[in-house]
């Protein structure tokens, strides 16, 4: 897997923007954010989205909350670096980032899709309840914290390279896939959902709250389509594919959905 630097550096150049996810048709309107304060920026974005369904954001400089509560049928294509809480509370929309993202991508996201052609910061997918997040490169600490599933909603995060420590902390549902290395304190307090790892966890990273196993056919039915989607989105810009390796993955699942059932006494 190597380091993130080469690929993401390439992605920052204009030329890399052609490697999209087949995002069609071309955005109907462009909004240049520049040095705008997030409040004004988001207001302009909302106004543009009231007029058209597809909006491209140019010269984005870390404005927070882009794609906040974005409903189904609306799409943002972001050039530059979106700020924290990208796609927070998102409700069915699509956000594609041609660059890196910062902290808390998809915070408390309900539905929709986030695609980042680069890496992202800490706490990606915090409390996510539905939708999918594809990160081409790595992510920071505490990704997937308190992700939860409900009914038909199964949140998915796929991270293409290394993930930091405390991955999947208090994870209560959904699917988290890591194609690189993971850090310490993996899946602490996990009580639902599943984490798929291409590489075995670091020694001592797992507690007895979780169970480590090899993927089986049922897992492959979930994992293989996600890897295929990752390839569809990123293989051209990365120059390699990952979907052929699905059967080599490891699986981390909670030992119990009631981790604290016997913790208390009256």
């Amino acid at each position: 897997m190597g380091t993130v630097s080469a690929a993401s550096a390439a992605n920052k150049q204009e030329g890399a923007q052609s490697c999209s996810s087949g995002f069609a048709p071309a955005p109907a309107e462009r909004v240049t954010l520049g040095a705008l304060h997030f409040k004004e920026a988001n207001e302009q974005v909302r106004q543009a989205l009231d007029r058209v369904d597809d909006v491209a954001l140019e010269d984005v400089r870390a404005q927070r909350y882009l794609g906040c509560a974005l409903p189904a049928g609306k799409r943002l294509r972001i050039h530059g670096t979106p700020g924290n809480d990208l796609a927070c509370f998102m409700d069915g929309g699509t956000v594609e980032v041609l660059g890196n993202a910062q902290d808390q991508v998809g915070n408390t996201m309900n539905a929709g899709e986030v695609i980042v052609h680069g890496r992202c910061g800490d706490a990606a997918g915090y409390a996510m309840r539905g939708g999918r997040v594809f990160i081409r490169d790595g992510c920071g600490w505490r990704a997937g914290i308190h992700m939860k599933a409900y009914d038909a909603r199964q949140p998915v995060v796929v991270v293409g390279k290394d993930a930091g420590s405390f991955l999947g902390e208090y994870m209560a549902g959904g699917v988290f896939v890591v194609l690189g290395e993971t850090g310490d304190y993996l899946a602490r307090g996990m009580h639902g959902g599943v984490i798929y790892l291409k590489n075995p966890p670091r020694a001592g990273a797992l507690s007895d709250e979780v169970v480590l196993s090899r993927v089986d056919d049922a897992d492959l039915a979930v994992l293989a389509p996600l890897l295929a989607e990752y390839d569809r989105l990123f293989a051209a810009e990365l120059g390699y594919r990952v979907s052929a390796e699905a059967s080599e993955f490891f699986r981390v699942t909670p030992a119990s959905s009631r981790p604290y059932a016997s913790m208390y006494v009256r």
Partner: peptide
Amino acid sequence: IPEGADAISPAPHHD
């Protein structure tokens, strides 16, 4: 959240 599973509110907000 799923029926029958513990509903855990972590001590801090992790954001």
